[in-house]
Design a protein around this nucleic acid. Sequence first.
DNA 1: TCTAAATATTTTATACATAAATTATCTGCG
DNA 2: CGCAGATAATTTATGTATAAAATATTTAGA
Lengths: 190, 190
Amino acid sequence: MTPRDSDTLARGVPDLESRLHETHHETLRLWLRLLTCTLLIESNVRTRLRGQFKTTLPRFDLMAQLERNPRGLRMGELSRRLMVTGGNITGITDQLVAEGLVERQPIPEDRRAYAVCLTSKGKRQFDLMAQAHEQWIEEMLGALPAVERRRLHGLLGRLKSGLNERKSEPPPRSARKRVVERRLPREKHA
Amino acid sequence: MTPRDSDTLARGVPDLESRLHETHHETLRLWLRLLTCTLLIESNVRTRLRGQFKTTLPRFDLMAQLERNPRGLRMGELSRRLMVTGGNITGITDQLVAEGLVERQPIPEDRRAYAVCLTSKGKRQFDLMAQAHEQWIEEMLGALPAVERRRLHGLLGRLKSGLNERKSEPPPRSARKRVVERRLPREKHA
DNA sequence: TCTAAATATTTTATACATAAATTATCTGCG
DNA sequence: CGCAGATAATTTATGTATAAAATATTTAGA
């Protein structure tokens, strides 16, 4: 296949696509390009968030989810929405609590759980960052005409649906992982 | 705008797109979808690499770049192609060296630099992983018909070109950062 | 010829990210 | 009613990732 102008241009700068051979399947090419585009945009956003607001992308993303849900989200729900592990959410939340931007609010019906909410300070701070963030994204993705952006959005939507359909066929769960053995009470860690 | 079937489906599972409002610009929607798709695929690949080969995606990617360049790549070149910092490359290379999968080869013309190459063991190991990896990618991206994959690839190519064009207009560099002050010889760290 | 500036890589301090284990609490069923 | 199993969040050990500084070496220009 003879590459088109954008394809030739798209392969000029060394990046993840640099490892491709002639023989590689088109799905691998698509994957590496997807990843490359994501990293290019992400890198730009991280740099600017740090430079202008002294914060990080994971913290910003967590606050964004909370802004959309003013009554708070549980740690587990944050984990799902941010697509990271619960342990990671704990650490990022700790940082934002220390900065006074979010708070953990106990849930009376379930003493294991918390609702994480933005504080007033957090809301103000998030609004400032969100305005700038959306502007940066518009700048970067504005490189593509609107009609192509919409087409891209639709195609990625179809891809995402396909990926999620595959995920919703989980392997059978191993029931009764800990058979027979009784869990003894333990002293708290030092 | 009334969402289409794939759009509705694409927004069913909670993820990064969950934070979107009606008022958010379409570029932000596109960005969050791009990121979501990338994370879905990446997560799957990481899990399988760990489970079947006891390795990590960054190590695999580094080996992939070396496979494409049998005479080796310098640390700085690896940094560019993998789109991460030099410090990160040092750490990942250390791990692969310890596993006997790559080696640093001195470059006679430049005693500061090394060429990083796959060892024989590394080549064999990489070939096994690469075969499986390409298969996983084909499975996942095979959810999209070939014509749509090609269209997606082309659109992302245009996006990537636009992003790279913006990056090649850097701000003026601060020449002579350390003016006047003489750098004194220092003892090596303990 | 000499040295300031630049380059290549590593080190340091810190943040994010994971899987697995741990702890506290809740639920459903015998 | 009691408890095994499940759930929610945290902790632990480890890997990745960054910016900035440090170190060794090379280069270009005065």
